[in-house]
Design a protein around this nucleic acid. Sequence first.
DNA 1: CTGAAAGCGCTAACAG
DNA 2: CTGTTAGCGCTTTCAG
Lengths: 347, 347
Amino acid sequence: MSRPTIRDVAALSGVSLKTVSRVLNEEPGVRPDTMQRVLDAVAELRFQRNEAAANLRRRNNSTRIVGLVTEDVANPFYSAVAGAIESVARQHRHLLLVASSGENPARERELVEAFCARRVVGLIIVPAGGDHSYLEDEIAAGTPVVFVDRPGLPGRVDSVVTENAEGARAGVTHLLNQGHARIAFLGDSAEIYTAVERHRGYRQALEDAGVTLDYALVRFGPHDVALAEQAARELLALPEPPTAIFAGNNRLTIGSVRAIQETGRRVALVGFDDFEMAEYLDPPVTVLAQDPEALGRNAAELLFDRLAGDGGEPRLVTIGAPLVVRGSGEIAYSDGGTARRRAVAKR
Amino acid sequence: MSRPTIRDVAALSGVSLKTVSRVLNEEPGVRPDTMQRVLDAVAELRFQRNEAAANLRRRNNSTRIVGLVTEDVANPFYSAVAGAIESVARQHRHLLLVASSGENPARERELVEAFCARRVVGLIIVPAGGDHSYLEDEIAAGTPVVFVDRPGLPGRVDSVVTENAEGARAGVTHLLNQGHARIAFLGDSAEIYTAVERHRGYRQALEDAGVTLDYALVRFGPHDVALAEQAARELLALPEPPTAIFAGNNRLTIGSVRAIQETGRRVALVGFDDFEMAEYLDPPVTVLAQDPEALGRNAAELLFDRLAGDGGEPRLVTIGAPLVVRGSGEIAYSDGGTARRRAVAKR
DNA sequence: CTGAAAGCGCTAACAG
DNA sequence: CTGTTAGCGCTTTCAG
């Protein structure tokens, strides 16, 4: 029931504690036959070193555990980020502790503290809103922190983010290039960094093209497909409806697809963030493809660089979100007044 | 740079080690003003207890960390399972260590051992193939283990699995009820437990209905959408093609949708496992909806029951996969010989 | 109410 | 090549 210790191994193999420790740590200077006896005892007792105890004593002690605080582990986007982080951690023979903050700053802090109390070697955080200066002590204590998906403590800490504004700008410009001028913007809550950035890109694209922003076409808020569909439906029911929609994330994109299908009109659509079925919808959806895997990988690599002693200035790594052309974004502007034919761009 | 210890707190507040420890552990019997002084020192030094050290000494020592070894953290299905586990763990004030085995039994074992060396309080495992008897020692040492999604060490250890055979049987019966007799089966690798179980359900449904199994209509193997599409296309190109397809997981379902769309024929489709866009496809896809959240929640609850001392017989918990009717599965059998019209069930 | 001493399981430092 | 002693940061035991 109770686990064998290094003492038990020493007793069984008839050597001292230290010799067992040497064998376990593959330190040189143990006679082969002694080593064998120790190994036999280890096997017989099924001994497993207590890493926590070993760590406590070691000079260069390290739990070899990285902490990840994300918004929601169950969210496929963040789970892709987590998967990439885990993969890099694995290469460095580290383990990953994960937790979800649920966009709650207080919970985020609790989790970070729980991680630190367990002496994770570094933290990767998808920051919820709020102030992150509580991390300064931890950073001062030598725990590297990397923010991912959204920046935090800018200029003080490394961050890896998607090119939200640039991507949105490219996407909206793409719609403008198809002749659209009335382009709606559908965004998540205006509290969320990425939503705001994407809106910024939208505005820039309009400005670049000399198109006046019509606030009637801008909607922030819907957080799920149903609400997004509702919002898109309202936009499309305006007296002067948009001829194209730019959707700020994949739930909004899906809602938009549904609302557009309902009208039977040929409304162009570009969405931010790729999703599994985008190419199988009708019409296939043109998107700005975020790369969660690159986000996670870069964050983890940055973290391990810091752990390896890289003391350079805090970095801001940006990951592109290239336009993936599939059909919905290439529906050209047409006067539309009476374009009611149910012209569905099949494939 | 180096973290303060309980000694530093004791020195600053002018009390002994033990008094600090008492305050930290909220043990009774500390004068309020003494307590306050200690708390002040803790705040000033930004002291954070080293949980590993505390654990080492504690009688009822517990890392309050649960380990999860899944097939792939980045897979949305398993991330939903992980999310539910994390949520239950949180309620019990535990943290979650996660890792991906990538279906590799050796890696799974390595990970389990790394977790055990860190003394996780319990393990939840999506077992890769292979022998799991290596876990017996760990179990004997008092670490509860729960298998999820696939059973392992049946009868010896708790498992939480989906009703794969029952669900598949219901799905295929549903197709039979629409008049279909030539129903193809598309499954993942026959090495995978769930694929085999679902195929068992398929066979049972045919048997129940007195329909002879045609092995030409059974395909195991395709592991991604492209291969699935290819396999489905081949099935549909048979001299006597199926009039319905039962797809064993969501990638296979999506591949089937594509292949069916290509033919322009009205082929019914029921898929195992729900997916985000199923209702937005054309036609909307009827599925057996697995419940990864329930899988994870039940596994975690079972684990915490065991940790709470439940010493009952190993349990096998099954989670239903109800039929979600959306359209594709309700396409009735029609002689089809010349049913070539491009009849797309548009809402 | 408080503190000194011992010790969790292991490794570091120093002897032999 | 091997062993002894100390001590990581904390809690326990037992004594004030």
